[in-house]
Design a protein around this nucleic acid. Structure first.
Length: 462
DNA sequence: ATAGCCTTGAAG
DNA sequence: CTTCAAGGCTAT
């Protein structure tokens, strides 16, 4: 019996993010199967136009992939396959500019594997995950984790927690490129490099999400595209936070491990760092002076943190489980057994919000807008550049409205519902802050961290 | 049209 | 030289 880490090339054990078939290598930006590689090539080379007979949401898997080329191609694009990697000149052989990216992705996977080994996680067989979602708890798992393991209520036999294989997410989404790589992609006049007109904006900058074959009705406002560029990639984030967490755990000492609550604080803290980093380097925010930046972040950190958690459930989560930023899944059964009444009701309302956003079919584009909407809150007191913040929020609102109307033309209420969700989020975040503050008063909170500082900063403002 | 296998050729 | 992701070929 093979263990995952003994398999010669684990990357080939992964599944095609488009259809779930066996991966044959890197093709057009990421690991895919041979058939989707061919399909993507044919489509782009021959400039094929497909239409969907259904509602543009056909399920694409190994058996159904032939049925709707429209949805298959949509999925190709949405998981991050690159139009630019299909050569306009049909030149054969050699390498293109994606080479270094593939190399980096390999290194990342290697690192992740090492991480998983070091931490005692057992990665699940992806095939098992796709085929037997129901039975997973009993078959795939075997996961007594060092993390999330210290509460007496957790029974390792019942496998409430499982490791979430990263390959469910797009492995190399368009926005995982660094700035230098953006530059190198956009100025490519290489003879073997096919830059599609539609993939480059008029100012020459790279626009990952514009697509030449986009169906009518999903044209993306320019601003939404800008937001998407600022949006961190889930897999990179997962790696970063998992790495950090492991380091912290090592520092913690061998003997005792932190309790579940402390662990959650560590994770929240790291997430908060990533949120601040996101804001710090984002469009519009960089134009503000530091003082206003601080005020905005102190105002909305908990909303953004909560939105991060909730959106993860909507976009990637599965029923009955809480998906952590580290990729682990925690059964709600476990959560509720652990939580007191306050936390339990928070979690319940959170789940309801997840459900509402799920029904609204929240996607990453809308999420990106919501984050900016929350960040640029003109209600924050004593802003030096109040007018600017207000105008940004108006622009964000406009972009979200445009995008949402394009996306679901029939559903006028969709936009309004999203705003209602933002408002519910605000309520929940305020409750969550209260909860954390109580924890702090009871001296149950670790306090040398950003989470604690944020909690404190607001208290001083109020 | 699809998808498995083949050939090519610049980068390392 | 070897690698391996690009395009090409062809039976289904």
């Amino acid at each position: 019996m093979y263990r995952m880490e003994d398999v010669p090339d684990a990357s080939l054990e992964e599944l095609c993010p488009v259809c779930g078939d066996k991966v044959s290598g890197y093709h057009y930006g990421l690991l895919t199967c041979e058939s989707c590689k061919g399909f993507f090539k044919r489509t782009v080379q021959n400039k094929k136009k497909y239409t969907c007979a259904e509602n543009q949401e056909c399920r694409i898997d190994k058996t159904h992939r032939k049925q709707c080329p429209f949805c298959r191609f949509q999925k190709c694009l949405s998981v991050g396959m690159r139009l630019e990697a299909v050569r306009g000149d049909r030149l054969r052989g050699g390498r293109n500019k994606f080479g270094p990216m593939y190399k980096r992705d390999r290194a990342l996977k290697q690192q992740k594997k090492a991480l998983i080994q070091a931490s005692g996680f057992r990665i699940e067989n992806n095939r098992a995950f796709i085929n037997h979602q129901r039975g997973l708890m009993f078959t795939g798992g075997l996961l007594p984790l060092p993390i999330l393991h210290s509460t007496a209520l957790h029974d390792p036999e019942s496998d409430h927690i499982s490791y979430q294989p990263a390959s469910r997410f797009s492995l190399l989404p368009s926005n995982s490129l660094g700035p230098t790589e953006f530059a190198s992609l956009s100025d490519g006049a290489d003879k073997s490099e096919y830059i599609n007109n539609c993939a480059s904006s008029s100012d020459g900058s790279y626009q990952p999400y514009s697509r030449p074959f986009s169906p009518q009705g999903s044209r993306m406002p320019h601003l939404v595209m800008e937001f998407m560029r600022c949006d961190p990639d889930e897999l990179l984030l997962q790696n970063k936070i998992a790495t950090h967490l492991l380091q912290e755990l090592k520092d913690w000492g061998k003997g005792e491990s932190p309790n579940t609550f402390s662990l959650m604080c560590l994770i929240a803290d790291q997430t908060l760092f990533s949120i601040v980093e996101w804001a710090r380097t984002s469009i519009f925010f960089t134009h503000l002076n530091v003082s206003d930046q601080m005020k905005l972040l102190q105002n909305c950190w908990s909303e953004l943190l909560l939105l991060d958690i909730i959106s993860r459930q909507v976009l990637y989560g599965k029923e009955g489980y809480l998906l952590l930023v580290t990729g682990q899944e925690v059964s709600y059964l476990y959560v509720s057994s652990y939580a007191g009444p306050t936390l339990a009701s928070l979690v319940k309302r959170g789940q309801e919000l997840v459900e509402r956003l799920h029904i609204l079919k929240l996607n990453r584009q809308q999420l990106a807008c919501m984050k900016f909407f929350i960040l640029f809150n003109p209600d924050v007191k004593q802003l030096e550049d109040h007018q600017y913040v207000e105008s940004v929020q108006e622009q964000v609102k406009g972009a979200l409205l445009d995008y949402t109307l394009c996306k679901s033309p029939g559903l006028l209420g969709c936009f309004a519902h999203l705003l209602l969700c933002v408002s519910e989020l605000r309520t929940l975040s305020s409750l969550a802050e209260d909860y954390l503050y109580c924890k702090h008063l009871n001296k149950e909170m670790p306090c040398n961290n950003l989470l604690f500082e944020m909690l404190h900063a607001k208290e001083n403002c109020a």
